[in-house]
Design a protein around this nucleic acid. Structure first.
Length: 269
DNA sequence: ATGGTGGTCCTACCA
């Protein structure tokens, strides 16, 4: 039995609840990781997801910003959170998903800080915060490699690591999300933990892959100035289980869309 | 062209 894991930065789960319900009904992933839910836990629309089969939920929100959630059709274990970046920020939640065959996979849902506009930690505290978060992730990732379990890292990592992850490598080298200090940090996190980038495994470079298009474009489809900010990585014991990958580009063209689209990976367990 | 749009929640802050 395969397990399908999806990720989507929804930019307010309350405003876009119907879009999420429609996506779940159509794609039927076993697990959906949401970022930027932008609400406190008691405001989270738990029952709406429960009604369509996503009864297992691990949620962690802040008032009006950040916020992560794992929605699952399969049983979830006790959730945990890593205290990276500013302590208390709702930017990570993890839980163990159990397949019908009894295989347990730990799903880590991350929302890495965007980092502001200026790519200099001396001039921009948000960029310093992002680099600090990545440093914490690196240390944790190196420890994870030694554990050797079945695990997935997913979410909005707010970094487009490769040249074909952005519309113009040269024009974005100074732009936060694609600067060398960030792309090298992300690659280091991935390598030191022996994670496989499942999307790039299925869709190798130089094919362009984007998961985010700015709201500020006059016509996002025509200009197509996208970036691949949302990722799904698998631990080395799962590298041989990477199945189909689906980037739900059409979601960017929905009415009142998120600026990110869903990314889905099927694991052939 | 140094703008542009969108969400939250009350005046800016975040992306």
């Amino acid at each position: 039995m395969p397990i399908a894991v999806a990720t989507w930065n929804i930019n307010s789960v309350r405003l876009r609840l119907q879009l999420v319900l429609d996506y779940l009904q159509r794609a039927r992933p076993d697990v959906l990781c949401l970022q930027e839910t932008k609400c406190l836990d008691d405001q989270f629309p738990r029952s709406a997801f429960k009604e369509i089969g996503y009864a297992h939920q691990a949620i962690r929100g802040d008032k009006g910003y950040n916020g992560v959630a794992i929605l699952s059709r399969l049983p979830l274990g006790e959730p945990s959170c890593l205290p990276f970046g500013r302590k208390g920020d709702a930017r990570h939640i993890a839980s163990e998903v159990r397949s019908e065959a009894g295989v347990a996979v730990t799903v880590h849902n991350f929302y890495v800080p965007a980092g502001g506009d200026i790519a200099d930690p001396e001039l921009n505290v948000k960029f310093a915060h992002k680099l600090g978060f990545l440093k914490d992730m690196r240390e944790w990732s190196a420890q994870q490699a030694g554990i050797g379990g079945l695990a997935v890292i997913t979410g909005d990592l707010n970094i487009a690591p490769y040249e074909s992850d952005v519309w113009s490598h040269k024009q974005l080298l100074d732009v936060v999300s694609h600067t060398p200090v960030e792309t090298e940090a992300l690659e280091d996190i991935r390598c030191c933990g022996d994670w496989t980038d499942a999307v790039r495994h299925r869709i190798p470079e130089p094919e362009r892959v984007y998961t985010w298009w700015s709201y500020r474009a006059v016509d996002w489809r025509a200009s197509n100035r996208g970036r691949r900010l949302d990722h799904i990585w698998v631990s080395s014991p799962l590298a041989g289980s990477i199945g189909e990958v689906t980037i739900e580009t059409a979601a960017r063209g929905l009415e009142r869309p998120s600026d990110h689209v869903p990314v889905l990976l099927s694991l052939t367990l």
